[in-house]
Nucleic acid binder design. Structure first.
Lengths: 243, 243
DNA sequence: GCGCGCTATTGATCTCGATCAAGGTTATCG
DNA sequence: CGATAACCTTGATCGAGATCAATAGCGCGC
């Protein structure tokens, strides 16, 4: 049992999610197809349509999945945070542009062996299903944001989601002061929220002026009253904090 | 082999997708947990948060998944067409409001036995993963539409997607004339596209005036030149028609 | 220190889609 | 057939966010 944890400790945090339920002999097999890749902030991991001979799990940093129209309009359709998975079984080509938003380390698995391994490891297959369903829920939550929320609500929602994830990792109470470094430029935020970077900047200024957030430098966000910010997202928030 | 097809023929079209790869003895087991439910257009199948003791596959008709904010703003986050699946393994409560958009028949499976069956039927589990990944791709395509497309592009995209699916089912060539009955009211289209119903109506009128579509009655859409309409979606469309 | 490139802020103006409002069409049912 | 209700269309106006433009801060190499 400690064996399992120790092995997977090479891929910190929740990459463990991928293999925590596997037995040691299976883990050894996973190790044979595993290697690491690093990217600098701004580098492209793959372009949509490129052949992708690996699947990967994010170890540290953030990657974004995006789609761009011919005239340059782009929409970020997903962020990959540590422990998130990239690549789809049975598909050889990337569906989206994948870009390192911050410096990024990924734990990669060669496609063929990984797929074969998955086919005979039910734990892993069901874990993949679970992760995919979570991503689907996240995408649908984002559809509500993109289709129906105001610019102000979009910014508040983004900060609440990042702040919540951050607080969860640090096991902090959610009603104290929460602070985090924004891992996105104004432009990336705009592309994620379906806004322009000017609107993002303006709405951040508004929230700051109203005391709902503070800025420390350009990138660090402090949320003095998490509940108050949540009230600006337009979401029902009677439920639990981690949803 | 004919046995399999015959059995699953009870659930027409691609519900077969769910069990086509299963062996006859397994299919018999599936049958023991199977029953049908019908809903009239407009009826609610479940509300978000309700306990849901079944999973289901759409046999005929269309269901919509939607989220509504306190002030009434609504976003449809997915349509379930025949063969699509409703319900998530391991989750007892509905995440979204599910509404019958047209008259609807679903093939339901009691949750517990179905989950147990899935756990020991790798075919089914991997089929579920595949379907979920497809839904995720569809959701992400929709995120681009919601975040970055104009009203005109949104309408054109909707018609192209419905027309394409329809043409695929009928095995028709995609460059002839395509016609289909719109299964959605203007309001439902608006909620799906992140618009108001007035804007939907106006943009349909514009496309009609320009000869890109024709209306037969209020609900039947005829696309005389599919390629021309596709050019209005803003999408890259050099690739294959079915993507 | 200075210039350069990148990122962010702020202002002025415009535009697309929302909103408010008034009819029109179609189906159903007595 | 006429009444009612649901759905759709069209017009007038408004406003949130886009667009265009100028300026400001910041890090980095020389």
């Amino acid at each position: 049992m400690t064996t399992a944890i120790k092995r997977c400790g090479e891929c910190p945090i929740r990459h463990r999610a991928l293999c925590a339920r596997c037995e040691p002999p299976e883990l050894e097999e996973l190790d044979t197809m595993k290697y690491y890749r690093s990217y600098e902030a701004g580098q492209t991991v793959v372009w949509a349509g490129d052949r992708m001979d690996f699947m990967a799990s994010v170890v540290s940093g953030i990657a974004s999945l995006s789609q761009t129209m011919e005239d340059g309009r782009t929409q970020i359709v997903g962020l990959l945070l540590p422990s998130d998975f990239l690549g789809r079984p049975g598909r050889e080509c990337a569906t989206y542009d994948v870009t390192a938003t911050t410096d990024l380390v990924m734990c990669c698995f060669r496609r063929k062996p990984f797929e074969a391994f998955m086919a005979r490891t039910p734990h892993l297959a069901s874990r993949m299903l679970e992760m995919t369903l979570d991503e689907l829920d996240a995408a649908r939550e984002w559809m509500l944001l993109l289709g129906r929320k105001t610019a102000r609500e979009k910014i508040a929602s983004l900060f609440v989601i990042i702040g919540r994830r951050d607080a969860a990792l640090k096991l902090k109470e959610a009603d104290g002061e929460i602070a985090f470094d924004l891992p996105l430029t104004r432009e990336a935020m705009a592309d994620y929220l379906g806004l322009t970077l000017e609107t993002v900047s303006r709405q951040i200024s508004v929230l700051k002026r109203e005391g709902l957030i503070r800025l420390e430098g350009k990138r660090r966000i402090v949320i003095p009253d998490f509940q108050a910010l949540m009230a600006e997202t337009g979401d029902d928030c009677d439920g639990g904090l981690i949803g």
